[in-house]
Amino acid sequence: MWNKRKIAAVIDHTLLKPVATQRDIERLCNEALECGFFSVCLNPCYVPWAAKLLEGSGIRVCTVVGFPLGATTIRNKVLEASEAIDNGAAEIDMVINLSLFKSGAEDYIRRELKEIIQTAKTKNKDTVVKVIIETCLLEEQEKLILTRLALEEGADFIKTSTGFNGPGATVEDVRLIRQVVGDKAGVKASGGIRTYSDAVKMLEAGANRLGTSSGLSIYQEAPE
């Protein structure tokens, strides 16, 4: 059973709204401390502050790169990831360049993955890199191709969605990604996970991390 302790341990407690304030981020971090969430996921400008607030707690700081469209250049994404790690981020959720992928530039996508993942691991070998493929904008074959590319280039997790471009995670997409990666990488379901029931469905489908802005209510709904 996914009790409070177990479900908290797989939640990236998330706040990526463009108008999130310092007070909101402080609340996010305090909730993570109270509930024992795995990490907080927030925009890059708040990484230094969150890292200070959570120092010594064991709760990781996660941030986003190329978010939410993925359409910035490789150099910009590399710099963004590098600075975030210098500022205290332990996990990087990067958005793949879907525009160029759909244009057929598979070699570019592979290079983007390679450079960002290598940068992160060189900075700190324990940095976790999650690749957001934005499943709601992809056909099934495209989901398979991007998942395999990310896996081959060393991604630690494949993440379904940003939550900013239509529907988020679905049970079917989580199951599909898990079938491709097996036990070679993690699967992060993200977007639209608002209830304990939603969370359990994603975990049973094969997710082993959840990105949600409803972490507190999911935790409160979970059994003791």
Rank of each mutant, 00 (worst) to 15 (best):
G192T: 08
E134P: 05
T162Q: 07
Y196I: 10
E134R: 03
G163Y: 02
E172V: 06
Q141C: 07
T119S: 09
T127E: 03
G191Q: 11
T170R: 15
S103T: 09
G192I: 04
D107Y: 07
G182C: 01
V187A: 08
L137E: 02
D198T: 09
E106D: 08
I117K: 04
V200H: 02
D183G: 10
A169K: 06
K201E: 13
G192S: 08
N97A: 02
A169R: 06
A150Y: 06
K114G: 00
N97W: 02
R194E: 11
K123G: 13
D198K: 11
I96V: 15
I145N: 09
V181Q: 04
R194D: 07
D198P: 13
D173N: 04
D107I: 04
L138K: 12
L98C: 10
T195V: 01
C136T: 15
K102W: 05
D107P: 04
K184W: 00
G166H: 11
L98A: 13
T195R: 05
R175W: 10
T195G: 03
G104T: 12
E204K: 15
L144I: 02
G166C: 12
Q179D: 03
N97H: 01
I193K: 15
L113I: 01
V129F: 06
A120L: 13
E153L: 11
G168C: 09
V187H: 07
E172F: 03
G191N: 13
L151D: 00
I177T: 00
G192D: 08
L146K: 01
A150M: 08
L137M: 07
Q118I: 03
R111L: 14
R148I: 01
G191L: 10
Y196S: 12
L98D: 10
T127H: 05
N124S: 12
V171S: 11
G192Y: 05
E106P: 00
E112K: 06
E139P: 08
T127N: 07
A120C: 15
K143D: 06
